[in-house]
Design a protein around this nucleic acid. Structure first.
Lengths: 142, 142
DNA sequence: GTTTTCTTGCGATTCGTTTGCATTTACATT
DNA sequence: AATGTAAATGCAAACGAATCGCAAGAAAAC
């Protein structure tokens, strides 16, 4: 199975948006396009820059990512630096490997890590999610 | 091997503090005592309440936890709710399981999870650390 | 096209955290 | 014990990320 093209992906995501009860507005479309076209989780501020500040106010970006996260179209990621980052939830579950020197972000999607949640299932918890991020110094920075 | 008593633990931690080049001040002693006596990672604000606000200013708590983290006596933990929490770094490496309803925090220290970092070692990264937190609904809240 | 409901812009506001600066304290040195 | 000095503190002001109130604007429903 080939990976979908950028436009395919955008249509897919916009489809998800229509299925939710969220309205299809210009800021939301711009944000989703930005995340389809660009890699890596971004802060609201970064998204605001990418879509161009003329599209909408920064406050609107915050409100959009919040509603899109609620609708499970976006996923929030925390790198422990006091700001939330967002990426398409549609992408397969994965984690990040962040170089603490150059801030490069790599994707980690080892199949063995898929089963992580089972360690807490036996405690009777439900609706389990987890957040796993790696930090280290990348080969280039050594 | 028995777990150390509260006073043993406190002395051990104060020993670490002396070995660092940090001065042994009243606020730092109070904070370490608070973390020896109480479970779970706490925010600066929570620590400030525990040690009693008379001990020092909130700004001092922030400065203390920062220096104690730097000295690797405390460890910072993020639950993705826009505030940092601190616990004794001395305690064995573990993760947290946070009930998203009642905010209860449990410790997760499955031995199988110890080896997590190896998934990124093969990418040539060094000084690897990771942050893994679980979120779910606890049996009592169901 | 009109109504209803959601969304936005803009400014003000909150909240966690940090900082500047004068003062105080811990600790080393005499 | 008195002194010197570098580090730590209190207090208030400043900060940055995120949120909110409200009036105006735009989408979807009728």
């Amino acid at each position: 199975m080939k990976s979908a093209s950028s436009t395919d992906k955008l249509e897919e995501v916009l489809g998800e948006l229509k299925k939710s009860r969220l309205k299809l507005t210009k800021p939301r479309k711009a944000i989703l396009l930005a995340l389809v076209q660009n890699h890596g989780p971004f802060t609201a501020e970064e998204i605001h820059k990418i879509i161009s500040k003329k599209v909408c106010d920064l406050a609107t970006v915050y409100r959009c990512v919040a509603s899109l996260e609620e609708a499970e179209i976006l996923r929030r990621v925390e790198f422990g630096d006091d700001s939330s980052r967002y990426e398409l939830a549609h992408d397969t579950h994965h984690h990040h490997l962040i170089c603490t020197r150059c801030k490069r972000v790599e994707i980690v999607d080892e199949p063995e890590l898929e089963e992580i949640d089972r360690f807490v299932k036996k405690r009777g918890y439900s609706n389990i999610t987890h957040s796993l991020e790696f930090f280290g110094i990348c080969p280039d920075c050594l």
